[in-house]
Design a binder for these strands. Structure first.
Length: 224
DNA sequence: ACCCAGGGTCATA
DNA sequence: TATGACCATGGG
């Protein structure tokens, strides 16, 4: 079972996902922070509050009182932590010259700059790189790890970057791969949301943490 | 009542 | 470097 074949099976099962739901690159980045360990539906409510209060801009977010901003993003959970992260990120974003200046940096440099921002870890940075800056960077999340584990393509000890590099090397990492990476990550998330359906990939197992099927061997998947 | 969600940071050993 | 605690709302 190759990573390319996994992609085609997922695409055949679920169809194109058309991520990321966001009107602008900046909105995508806000969403990337708000969705940390949080259901997307809750993030949408928070973003709606920001927009309704004309606060969906780096200037407005940095200018907001923390208590007020926390109230707006409340549905997204961890609102005190995320208030600090949003304001911290926006201060950095404005100081760096906003989107156009950042977009001129090469991917490796931009990734390092993003990771240096407190509150932005590997997955959040890669969400931004792929879905806001449209760079060929593969996003690894908990679902990706579980999927690889259950397909016998990973053991569970691999680092974030090792898995990311595996996807990028086997699928390629040029500009042409941006659309592929975009769909692939979205399809993995979709696959996790579909609970215990029979699809070519999961064979009846879902990707929930405690899915009883998760312990099952995937059988001949490795030799496919 | 429980489990989960499109993680990351910080303190501790 | 490697765990553990912590953050917190909302849907199934």
């Amino acid at each position: 079972m190759t990573l390319r074949r996994v992609f085609h099976l997922l695409l055949r099962s679920y169809g194109p996902q058309h991520w990321w739901p966001g009107d602008s690159p900046f909105e995508v980045m806000v969403g990337a922070i708000l969705t940390q360990n949080t259901a997307w539906g809750n993030v949408e409510k928070a973003i709606h509050h920001l927009r309704a209060n004309d606060a969906l801009s780096p200037e407005a977010i940095t200018a907001s009182l923390p208590g007020v901003l926390a109230g707006w993003i409340r549905p997204a959970g961890y609102f005190n932590v995320k208030t600090a992260r949003l304001q911290n990120f926006c201060r950095w974003y404005l100081a760096a010259g906003a989107f156009d200046a950042l977009q001129r940096l090469n991917t490796s440099t931009l990734r390092q700059r993003l990771l240096a921002v407190n509150g932005v870890g590997p997955e959040t940075a890669d969400d931004m790189l792929l879905y806001a800056f449209e760079r060929p960077v593969f996003v690894i999340d908990a679902y990706t790890r579980r999927l690889l584990l259950r397909l016998g393509l990973a053991h569970g000890e691999e680092s974030y970057d090792k898995l990311r590099h595996a996807f990028e090397q086997q699928l390629g990492a040029t500009r042409r791969q941006v659309a592929l990476f975009n769909e692939y990550h979205a399809l993995i998330v979709m696959h996790a949301k579909v609970r215990c359906r029979k699809t070519p990939l999961c064979r009846g197992c879902c990707l929930l943490r405690n899915c009883p099927h998760g312990r099952h061997e995937v059988g001949t998947a490795r030799g496919d």
